[in-house]
Computed example of a mutant assay.
Amino acid sequence: MIGPTAPRERWITRPDVILHGEEVGAGATFLLLHAGGERRQVWGPVSEVLVDAGYRCVAFDQRGHGDSEGTARTLSACADDITAMVHAEPPASVLVGASLGGLAAIAALTDPAVRAKVAGLVLVDVVPCLEPSRVRRFLASVSLSGAHTELVEDILAQVPLLRQVTAELDLPVLLVHGDNGSSLTDDDIDQLLRLAPHTTVRPIQGAGHLIARHQPVALAQAIIATTTAWR
């Protein structure tokens, strides 16, 4: 018999791709959305802490990543995938999105039906107030500037929409950011707080942009500490 802490495979069939994922644990659900260039396994150490605390975690490879099919070319395609993931989960799931995952989650929340099923949004080292030239420099610094150029440019074109959606959100929001090599500046955080004043901000010491890799335990603890009251 497969116990609640043993990963269980998941698939979602979309019109153009099949998304491959897994779930682990039992209890209130976190839907974990990885960054561009990553895959679902990056959430493993974070999930261990969340599952031990009595939660259930679901993580899919985004299209064009890991075991999922297709190519991630537009933010709307990634957002539509997340919409499908949300509708496959029980009510009151919390979206946890790192970088691309966070931006696609914001885009998915344009749909009232998605907002109605979600208890809150955790942004992991990403904000909707993207400054194009700085984004491109950052991606070049981590050798990702040429890997997803079409997707990056599409995301940058969607910044006005991302800002609008964030400003209209009536869901609780948590921003977790690194303090060492983060992609965010104090001004980025201030802009988010002006858009969504109800946002909680938690820095993670010793973490860069990929907090799930650098400080997974601290990330999980920050998520638990803030989101417990959301459901």
Rank of each mutant, 00 (worst) to 15 (best):
4 P>L: 14
4 P>F: 15
5 T>R: 15
6 A>I: 13
7 P>L: 10
12 I>S: 04
20 H>A: 14
22 E>C: 06
23 E>Q: 13
23 E>T: 12
25 G>H: 03
26 A>P: 01
27 G>W: 07
29 T>K: 01
37 G>L: 08
37 G>H: 01
38 E>W: 12
44 G>K: 15
46 V>F: 01
48 E>H: 09
50 L>R: 02
53 A>M: 03
56 R>N: 11
60 F>E: 00
60 F>Q: 00
62 Q>Y: 11
65 H>S: 02
67 D>R: 15
69 E>M: 08
69 E>P: 05
70 G>Q: 03
71 T>E: 13
71 T>P: 04
71 T>K: 14
74 T>Q: 04
74 T>A: 02
76 S>L: 14
77 A>W: 02
79 A>V: 08
79 A>L: 00
79 A>P: 06
80 D>L: 10
81 D>E: 00
83 T>E: 10
84 A>N: 06
86 V>A: 01
88 A>K: 01
89 E>M: 14
94 V>L: 08
98 A>P: 10
99 S>Q: 12
101 G>F: 15
103 L>N: 04
104 A>L: 04
106 I>M: 07
107 A>R: 15
108 A>C: 07
118 V>A: 07
120 G>R: 09
122 V>A: 06
127 V>H: 09
127 V>T: 13
129 C>Y: 03
130 L>S: 00
130 L>F: 12
132 P>F: 09
139 L>N: 11
140 A>T: 09
141 S>Y: 08
143 S>R: 05
144 L>R: 00
144 L>D: 12
144 L>H: 07
145 S>T: 14
146 G>A: 15
150 E>K: 07
162 L>D: 04
162 L>Q: 03
163 R>D: 05
164 Q>P: 13
166 T>F: 11
167 A>F: 03
168 E>F: 05
168 E>S: 13
170 D>E: 14
171 L>N: 05
171 L>E: 05
177 H>R: 13
178 G>S: 11
184 L>Y: 04
185 T>D: 03
186 D>N: 15
196 A>I: 02
199 T>W: 13
200 T>K: 10
201 V>L: 01
203 P>H: 11
210 L>Y: 12
213 R>L: 15
216 P>C: 01
216 P>W: 11
217 V>W: 08
218 A>Y: 10
219 L>H: 06
219 L>W: 02
220 A>C: 02
223 I>E: 00
224 I>R: 09
226 T>L: 01
226 T>Y: 06
226 T>M: 00
231 R>F: 14
